[in-house]
């Protein structure tokens, strides 16, 4: 693997040159520190799975030191030794046969998205992954559509990142659906990996789902999923080696807190046609919590955490239904 220094990355056409600036708008909080880990279920899960993976690898790998990725300070670059080691985790979903392991990893500051997309378009089988765009540059409507087709949220011009993934569960739900459809011989797209991308869709339009959720030449944050199947079994170390060699970007842990940093809630609501409960301007009916300890209906507002959970389950519902009108 060629050694890379962060200065070698050509600055993206659409972003502030200083990589730190790209994240300041949503990165007010420091990265979760070890003492607080147990409060973050996604993160904890990732540690467990990482541990499972490390165990399988016979502890060949160094345990991942997450504090190395802290973005509390202004230094946004990674220690050179860890620059491209994918933070791969292997998940086994409920009801899915043990033969279908799911390898997942997340990157940001991707610099070879165009190359990766080419491999998909060319049908290069060694690049059979679900390559999900976890961030896209969204400029003014006209510029954006000239560059890469119509933007889903033309009114969002002040947000450089428009991320469409809510949480880990959002991604796992898509994987579950795709694997289930694959096993029952009901794939609607080319293979289980493209089906994962399609499974994120709130409707039946396959081409639109690829455009919306798939990798583009301008993708900067990238979610990569590889499903091991009985006909083409793939081990975590094989995936790890391949990604380490081919992905030019900065690995970050696949956790709810990482995803939350770049989630674009208004855009997600728009894509999944969910009520805009933003500032309660008309239409959107906010779900209220009914507290009725003593038989009287007290009504409380949802906390931010509850609101996020609510958004998540509504996205899951929209994906399950996939616009079915029956």
């Amino acid at each position: 693997m060629p050694a890379r220094k962060s200065e070698e990355h050509p600055p993206s056409r659409f972003l502030p040159a200083d990589p730190f600036l790209r994240f300041t708008h949503k990165r007010a909080q420091p990265m979760t520190l070890p003492t607080a880990r147990s409060q973050e279920p996604g993160l904890e899960m990732s540690f467990k799975l990482q541990a499972r993976f490390d165990a399988r690898q016979g502890n060949r790998r160094q345990p991942v030191n997450l504090t190395a990725y802290s973005r509390a300070g202004s230094d946004n670059s990674l220690p050179a030794t860890m620059a491209a080691k994918a933070l791969l985790e292997t998940v086994h979903l409920e009801h899915v046969p043990a033969s279908h392991a799911i390898h997942i990893t997340l990157y940001r500051n991707i610099t070879n998205a165009s190359f990766l997309q080419q491999q998909l378009l060319a049908g290069n089988t060694s690049f059979e992954y679900a390559l999900i765009d976890a961030s896209v540059v969204c400029l003014s409507p006209s510029t954006s559509s000239k560059l890469f087709g119509p933007c889903d949220a033309p009114n969002i011009t002040d947000t450089p990142f428009a991320q469409k993934i809510v949480s880990r569960l959002h991604v796992l739900a898509a994987a579950f659906r795709a694997i289930n459809d694959s096993i029952s011989g009901r794939l609607r797209s080319r293979n289980v990996h493209s089906e994962i991308v399609f499974s994120l869709s709130p409707n039946n339009n396959i081409a639109e789902s690829f455009r919306r959720f798939g990798i583009t030449p301008d993708t900067t944050s990238l979610l990569i999923i590889k499903v091991s199947t009985p006909t083409s079994p793939t081990t975590a170390s094989e995936v790890q080696a391949h990604l380490d060699a081919e992905i030019q970007g900065e690995p970050i842990p696949f956790t709810d807190s990482e995803l939350a940093q770049i989630s674009d809630i208004p855009r997600i609501k728009k894509i999944y046609k969910l009520n805009n409960s933003g500032n309660g301007n008309g239409g959107g009916k906010k779900k209220e919590k009914v507290v009725n300890g003593d038989g009287v209906n007290g009504v409380g507002k949802l906390t931010a955490e509850e609101e996020k959970k609510e958004l998540e389950v509504q996205v899951l519902g929209a994906m399950a239904l996939r616009g079915a009108t029956n």
Partner: peptide
């Protein structure tokens, strides 16, 4: 169920279906 949930009517959320 999805419609109810979206409109704030208390029902179980839909997770998956076949």
């Amino acid at each position: 169920l999805v419609k109810c949930r979206k409109e704030g009517v208390p029902v179980p959320a839909v997770y998956a279906l076949d």
